[in-house]
Each structure stands twice: as structure tokens, then as C-alpha cells.
């Protein structure tokens, strides 16, 4: 199917052999927002890591299909070029690598063959503008990749990368954890303001972010399976009564 990310009966274990996901199926069309909620250890982060191809996880069964292309066995960079993006819960710091040069390199790598590369000046202007809307205090172009970033800045920097790279499908792994109310608003507003159609998987513990970003679907992931799906009201229900009845 065009314009969709299809996850088909996904079974995932760690390289050490521990089974985490036991058959997850989801279809995310462009323009849709799917929230995935669930208790700790339910497999939320494993789902995001496995979708992007983290070498610590093995897909033992099932498929991941983007726009009709089976990308299950692709390497992370191939998946990125196929249109996938992962916003990390804990972005790593990479010393000495300039944020701006890295992002421009990534942007150019994702261009299809024959597509024109962005000029350094146009890129810089765009980056500075986008950073402003996320309220970055220091000049982002002079900073190293996540190095010395505060917890909130790291999270904002993930969304900044999303805004610059404009992937067709984004998985955001707990973009709200550890954020104060102001930072949460900046992040949510930025995601809402993205001016193109993309599919979004929003992994979260709390309903808080869903006040700002309205999901079309909410799924509850428990013990490696989606045990309940519904609309935005499901999130409110969980907020009131917890996950216990799904366990």
C-alpha cells in the first residue's frame, strides 16, 4: 500500500534471545497519529528500536512495509532513506561532531538520486529558523551533537531533526519524558505545525502530551502485544484507571 507504514505480526527478541514482542500489527497511514501506551517493560521502546533496525534486536517473524516496500531486513540507514525516522528517548552524545554539519550530511544522504542538495547557506538559515521556534537559547550551529545539551534540549533537538529531515513516517519514543510544561508545549506545537503530511507513532507513558497532540488512534502495548486499541478517549480512560485491567 502506498502512503502507509504497515507492521505485520512483528515478533522481536534481543540478540541474547529474550523474546520481547509477540506479534504486533499496526497500519499507519500518512496524516495519522497513533499513540502507543503501556506499562514499563511492555515492549514500547523495543518496538521503536526494532522498527529502525537496532543491531541489539532481531526480528524473528513478521514484516515492516513502507509504501509497499518490505524494509524488514534493511540496515538503519536504508530504513532512514526509505522514509523512516526515530526520535530517541535517550539521544546519545557524540563529542566533537558538529550538530549542524551532521544534520546537513544526513539531509543530503536522504536525497534521492538526481535530487538537488541543499546549499550550506540555505540549510543554515532554515536550521536557525527552526531552532528559534523550539526556543533554543544558544546558537545551535556552533554546538556538538547532543554534547552538553540539557535533558530538555536533547528532546527538542530530536524534534528539530524531525522538522529538518521531514520523514514520511516518524516514531517518537517518549518525546515527553523528563520535560517541563514549557518545553512540552514547544515540542507539541512544533509537531502540530509541521507543514506536510506524515504518519506518526507516538510512544508515551502519559496522557499529558496527548492534550496537545490529538491522536487518531490509541493502542495499549502489554507483554509484547497490542491488547487494546481505540480513539483518544482510551488514553483518558487509562489515565483514570491505569493499565491493570489490561495486564
Amino acid at each position: 500500500m502506498k502512503n502507509a507504514l504497515i507492521i505485520e505480526d512483528l515478533h522481536v527478541q534481543t540478540v541474547e534471545g529474550k523474546q520481547i514482542l509477540n506479534g504486533v500489527s499496526l497500519t499507519i497511514k500518512k496524516g495519522e497519529i497513533h499513540a502507543i501506551m503501556g506499562p514499563n517493560g511492555g515492549g514500547k521502546s523495543t518496538l521503536s528500536a526494532a522498527l529502525m533496525g537496532h543491531p541489539g534486536y532481531v526480528i524473528t517473524k513478521g514484516k515492516v512495509i513502507v509504501n509497499g516496500v518490505d524494509i524488514t531486513k534493511f540496515s538503519p540507514d536504508q530504513k532512514a532513506r526509505a522514509g523512516l525516522f526515530l526520535g530517541f528517548q535517550y539521544p546519545v552524545e557524540i563529542a566533537g561532531v558538529n550538530f549542524s554539519s551532521f544534520l546537513r550530511m544526513a539531509m543530503n544522504e536522504r536525497k534521492k538520486e538526481g535530487e538537488k542538495k541543499i546549499s550550506p547557506i540555505a540549510f543554515k538559515n532554515k536550521l536557525v529558523d527552526e531552532a528559534k521556534t523550539l526556543s533554543f537559547r544558544d546558537d545551535i550551529t556552533k554546538r556538538a551533537l547532543n554534547e552538553g545539551f540539557s535533558g530538555g534540549e536533547k528532546k527538542k533537538a530530536e524534534i528539530l531533526q524531525l522538522a529538518m529531515l521531514k520523514p514520511e513516517f516518524a516514531i517518537l519514543d517518549e518525546p515527553d519524558s523528563g520535560l517541563d510544561v514549557d518545553a512540552l508545549k514547544y515540542i507539541a506545537n512544533k509537531i502540530n505545525d509541521l507543514d506536510y503530511e506524515f504518519g506518526l507513532i507516538l510512544i508515551t507513558h502519559y496522557q499529558r502530551i496527548l492534550k496537545y497532540i490529538k491522536p487518531h488512534f490509541v493502542h495499549v502495548l502489554v507483554k509484547g502485544k497490542i491488547v487494546k486499541s481505540g480513539n483518544a478517549k482510551l488514553a483518558q480512560l487509562i489515565e483514570q484507571s491505569g493499565y491493570e485491567k489490561y495486564i
Partner: peptide
């Protein structure tokens, strides 16, 4: 993994 997830080889 982080860098490759952005499209770098």
C-alpha cells in the same frame, strides 16, 4: 545506530 538512523552509512 543513532547516526545511521538519520541516513548515514
Amino acid at each position: 545506530f543513532y547516526l545511521m538512523s538519520r541516513g548515514l552509512t
